[in-house]
Design a protein around this nucleic acid. Structure first.
Lengths: 326, 326
DNA sequence: GTGAAAGCGCTAACAA
DNA sequence: TTGTTAGCGCTTTCAC
């Protein structure tokens, strides 16, 4: 019981494969109603399904897009993927998913494989947006997500990191938090972190002592010191959800409480932030939208035949959410 | 600058396509060293990459597996996907990812599309494992994840829901919580929920009054009542992370605190549970492992040529984690 | 040891 | 309005 092919349909109806192919592709304008109907019937009877692989080979287009995720474990990314999938689904594209596990070697391999699969385009959430290897990607067929490179070489979809952080910190300052700190993982080379920090500096100033890098020698002690000895009203802004989690682990062992002893805010809004007690004020990225916009933009680019354009930056606005943490 | 094909290589070397194809597929036993070397060189020079699509068409095997996720937004699933990807990657299979958004229609469409793409196999995290439409899937080529159907018709990888819940509740009871409640979303037809509840009943008894369904009429009041009026030591077990989150929202507005006024435990271990204060004791599913095992099993099945076997249940053990919530 | 050639299932230019 | 035909890039049987 081999699968039925276009040839079978053609024979059943008594026409050539070409005619059936035309029918399949809606190229049906000058086709007699009778043959049309006969073909329709034959297809229905047999439950015929065109073979996508064969189609791809003939058209040289796989109608698939490859997604390269830096770390699928990052809670931020699941909504992004949802957005991507929804958009692709709607346009009849399938999505090839790939996880780099925060390892540049794996990332490179993933990209390579996707290319070999002849994906129509690539959506890239890069580990290092500045990595030179990425410059080899065809900018006509790729869109970057979340992290952007120094000099943009490909369209990129990002949150408005600077502005939203600035506005948020402005609010904190307004509420009387005079001594504000930016808590983060190492910043250098990662645009999201750099830009959020930049937004912070625009309000607080570029005083390096206000930057706390978790994981660095003595950072934990530093935080505890601050809590113990600072004379002014203290506030902390964590660069994303995981940083907030780590920060909480440090605080939890102590007597210090927010918002009593210090103010707290974070980039990213994760489910649990409104359940922490007190709940966390934060900046909510529209990650679903980011995925959607990126996919949408990529698909549009793939349609238009190679008009080369300047790399674009597409910005998706984040929302400030004020709860009880400062 | 068209891509170089096998034909080009053949011409460069001065052999036929067949010979090059043999070389490519390691079918190189009776091939002269010279031609081998010449081919190797030509490939290296040109950077030739075989076209996967053409290969697939010829071999009728796409070396891809389709993944159908009930709801990609569920935090549980991202590690599963990581496990799947790691395993597939290693075997040279690509992963076609698909999100059903908890909508059976979308699920059906996703499956249909994947089949049309000629995926080698399907990994299914089903919305309703008992849905009759799923019975049409070829059990030789599919493995189910997380949720299992009443009468198993396809290999399924699950956590040891009953046993781990039983052990966990046993511990709660041991600690003096005499009045225990199972907090959940609607249970019926969803094996994970049913089985966790079964484990609960094995310790607590099948008293329906001990079952609290969030979202149902009056469930919230019921919980608050219990807290206000119960004379015995009260304990709650939430069926998964999202339920715990909802439960916390109910509690947070009140004066009641755990573990002072009631004990608390949950299925699933999510990052934030150890940061809640007090931290949450829970059952940690090895979701990475689940993904890995499922992918591994599927790939193995695909290798062995159609020996039909009884549907298997593969169980991945969960781990009990005791923290400060009871 | 290697090559010729058919074929995988479909598309699309061209002819009729 | 429909059919012929030559591919798409690769695999694989059979012959030499």
């Amino acid at each position: 019981m081999a699968r039925v092919t276009i040839k079978d349909i053609a024979q059943m109806v008594g026409v050539s494969k070409a005619t059936v192919s035309y029918y399949l592709n809606g190229n049906t304008s000058k086709m007699s109603l009778v043959t049309k109907e006969k073909i329709r019937q034959a297809i229905e009877e047999t439950g015929y399904q065109p073979n996508k692989i064969a189609q791809s080979l003939a058209t040289k287009d796989t109608k698939s897009i490859g997604v390269v995720i830096a770390d699928i474990t990052n809670p931020f990314i699941s909504s992004v993927m949802k957005g991507i999938h929804d958009r692709c689904q709607k346009e009849g594209y399938s999505v090839l998913f790939t996880n780099s596990d925060d390892n540049p070697m794996i990332e490179a391999e993933n990209i390579h494989r996707l290319l070999q699969q002849n994906v129509s385009g690539i959506l890239l959430d890069p580990i290092d947006a500045n990595a030179s290897s990425l410059k080899r990607l065809n900018p006509q067929k790729t869109v970057m997500i979340d992290r952007e490179s120094q000099e943009m070489f490909v369209d990129t979809v990002v949150s408005n990191n600077i502005a939203s952080t600035r506005e948020f910190l402005y609010k904190m300052k307004e509420r009387g938090y005079e001594e504000l700190y930016f808590v983060s993982y190492p910043i250098e080379g990662i645009s999201t972190r750099e830009r959020r920090y930049r937004g912070f500096c625009e309000v607080v100033g570029a005083d390096a002592s206000r930057l706390l890098i978790l994981g660095e020698q003595g950072s934990e002690e530093r935080i505890l010191d601050l809590l113990a000895s600072s004379k002014k009203r203290l506030g902390f802004f964590t660069m994303n959800g995981p940083v907030l989690l780590d920060f909480m682990k440090i605080i939890n062992g102590t007597v210090y409480q927010y918002p009593r002893d210090f103010g707290l805010g974070s980039y990213e809004d994760l489910d649990w932030m409104q359940v922490l007690n007190p709940s966390i004020s934060c900046i909510r990225q529209d990650s679903y939208r980011i995925g959607q916009v990126a996919a949408d933009h990529l698909l549009k680019k793939l349609q238009q035949d190679d008009e080369v354009m300047e790399p674009q930056r597409l910005v998706v606005a984040s929302e400030l959410i004020f709860r009880d943490s400062f």
